Amino acid sequence: MYTGLLHLHSYMTYLVLLGVLISFGAALAGLFGNRPFTDKDRKLGLLGLIPTHLQWVFGVILYFVSPRGLSNFSGEAMGDSVSRLYILEHPLTMIIAVVLITIGYSRAKRQIGTGKGFKSIAILYGIALALILSRIPWMAWPGN
């Protein structure tokens, strides 16, 4: 079960990155195009929100079943940069990114008909994307 969940979590990252990039790009295009935020644009925001939330659920489960997760939590493990990444930095940063994406989408969906929905998604999804990219464990990336 652990290995399958680990692979699912690893490969799901591609969908998360693609969805957030599409949502972020569409928001930037709408923002700089000075057009109103429509229901179609709201649905494009879901491309970033849904895979991110699914990935978070898989990650929480993985955190509790992985030998690198909660069971490895100790003062000694905090001294090792790789262990600290898996125990603290990656989970905490990803939770912050999920919260930012959720807030961005929630604020944007109330702004249909104005241009403010694009701004909300562009800023908050952009910050979340930077956080996600900063704490992906690249050394364990599929294919490495």
Rank of each mutant, 00 (worst) to 15 (best):
20 V>W: 02
135 R>S: 08
35 R>V: 08
76 E>K: 09
58 F>K: 02
111 Q>E: 15
126 G>M: 04
92 L>E: 10
62 L>W: 09
99 V>G: 01
5 L>F: 11
130 A>V: 15
138 W>M: 14
129 L>Q: 02
134 S>F: 06
120 S>E: 09
24 F>Y: 04
54 L>W: 06
104 G>Q: 09
132 I>T: 04
31 L>P: 00
100 L>R: 06
62 L>R: 03
61 I>Y: 00
39 D>Q: 15
118 F>R: 12
33 G>M: 10
116 K>Y: 05
52 T>V: 02
101 I>E: 04
64 F>Q: 05
89 E>S: 14
115 G>I: 14
39 D>F: 05
108 A>V: 09
66 S>C: 13
37 F>K: 06
16 V>R: 05
100 L>F: 07
70 L>T: 10
104 G>V: 11
93 T>H: 08
16 V>N: 02
88 L>D: 13
16 V>T: 04
51 P>D: 05
42 R>A: 13
49 L>E: 02
81 S>F: 11
19 G>A: 02
140 A>T: 14
39 D>V: 14
97 A>V: 09
73 F>K: 05
129 L>S: 03
20 V>G: 01
18 L>N: 00
50 I>T: 06
79 G>I: 11
75 G>K: 07
25 G>K: 03
100 L>P: 04
31 L>C: 01
50 I>C: 01
98 V>C: 04
118 F>K: 13
77 A>L: 12
135 R>H: 07
27 A>T: 05
48 G>M: 03
121 I>R: 03
27 A>L: 07
95 I>S: 01
126 G>P: 03
95 I>A: 03
82 V>K: 13
1 M>E: 07
75 G>Q: 10
66 S>I: 13
96 I>R: 01
133 L>S: 02
72 N>G: 06
65 V>S: 06
71 S>W: 11
12 M>K: 01
105 Y>I: 09
30 G>L: 10
46 L>V: 05
128 A>P: 03
122 A>Y: 06
30 G>A: 10
129 L>K: 01
71 S>G: 14
67 P>L: 13
37 F>A: 08
119 K>Q: 12
68 R>A: 15
41 D>A: 13
84 R>K: 15
93 T>K: 06
91 P>W: 00
32 F>L: 10
26 A>L: 12
88 L>A: 15
106 S>Y: 14
123 I>V: 12
54 L>R: 03
88 L>Y: 12
82 V>R: 12
142 P>V: 11
132 I>M: 06
43 K>W: 05
142 P>W: 07
142 P>L: 10
45 G>D: 03
53 H>V: 04
97 A>F: 05
65 V>A: 07
144 N>M: 12
8 L>P: 03
75 G>H: 07
16 V>I: 09
135 R>K: 11
72 N>M: 15
39 D>A: 14
52 T>K: 00
111 Q>S: 12
22 I>V: 14
5 L>E: 08
25 G>D: 02
121 I>T: 08
88 L>T: 15
29 A>E: 09
62 L>Q: 09
40 K>N: 14
4 G>Q: 06
8 L>W: 09
119 K>Y: 01
107 R>E: 13
30 G>K: 04
116 K>A: 11
49 L>H: 04
114 T>M: 07
112 I>F: 05
102 T>Q: 07
47 L>K: 03
6 L>G: 08
23 S>W: 02
45 G>M: 00
56 W>S: 09
54 L>A: 12
40 K>F: 12
66 S>E: 11
109 K>Y: 11
127 I>C: 02
51 P>F: 00
68 R>V: 14
69 G>S: 13
63 Y>P: 06
